[in-house]
Simulated scan of single mutants.
Amino acid sequence: MPLRITTMTESFADQIMLWNYEPPYDFYNSEPDEEFRKELLECSYYAILDEEGQLFGFCCTGSSAQIPIAIPLGAYDEDLLDFGLGMKPESTGQGRGKEFLSFVLSSIAEIHNRTSYRLTVAKFNERAIRLYTQLGFSEVTSFDYGGTTFITMIKMPVSGL
Rank of each mutant, 00 (worst) to 15 (best):
G146A: 13
L161V: 06
Q54K: 09
P24Q: 11
C60T: 03
I67R: 15
A109L: 05
E34K: 10
M17A: 13
F58V: 02
A47R: 10
D50S: 09
T6S: 11
M8W: 04
T120R: 00
Y145L: 05
L81T: 13
F100I: 08
Q15V: 12
G86E: 02
I5W: 01
Q54S: 03
F143V: 03
R37D: 04
Q15H: 04
K88C: 06
E39Y: 07
P24M: 02
G53K: 01
C59G: 02
F12A: 08
G160F: 10
G136N: 09
Q94W: 05
S63N: 06
D14K: 14
S159P: 03
S64T: 11
A65Y: 06
K98V: 15
I111C: 02
D79I: 10
F143E: 09
L131M: 10
W19C: 04
S44W: 03
N20A: 15
I5M: 05
R4Q: 14
E34P: 10
I151G: 05
I71V: 15
E139W: 01
M1S: 14
E39L: 10
S64N: 04
D33R: 07
E31P: 00
S30N: 09
A75R: 05
G97P: 13
E31R: 11
G62F: 07
A122P: 09
F103P: 03
I154V: 15
T115A: 14
Y45A: 02
K123S: 10
L3Y: 09
F56R: 01
K98N: 13
Q134M: 12
F12D: 06
Y45S: 00
S64W: 08
G147H: 10
N113V: 08
L3R: 01
R130N: 08
T120V: 12
T115I: 08
G74C: 03
D50N: 13
F83E: 11
S64H: 08
S106H: 12
L81V: 05
S107A: 15
G95A: 14
I48K: 00
C43F: 05
V158S: 12
S142K: 07
A122V: 04
E31Y: 03
E99K: 13
Q15L: 14
D77W: 04
K38M: 12
S138E: 10
M17D: 13
L18I: 03
T141W: 00
T149S: 11
L131A: 02
D82A: 12
M87W: 02
L131S: 09
C59D: 07
V104P: 09
I48M: 04
D14W: 04
T7L: 06
P24K: 03
G53D: 00
S138Y: 14
G97L: 15
F27S: 00
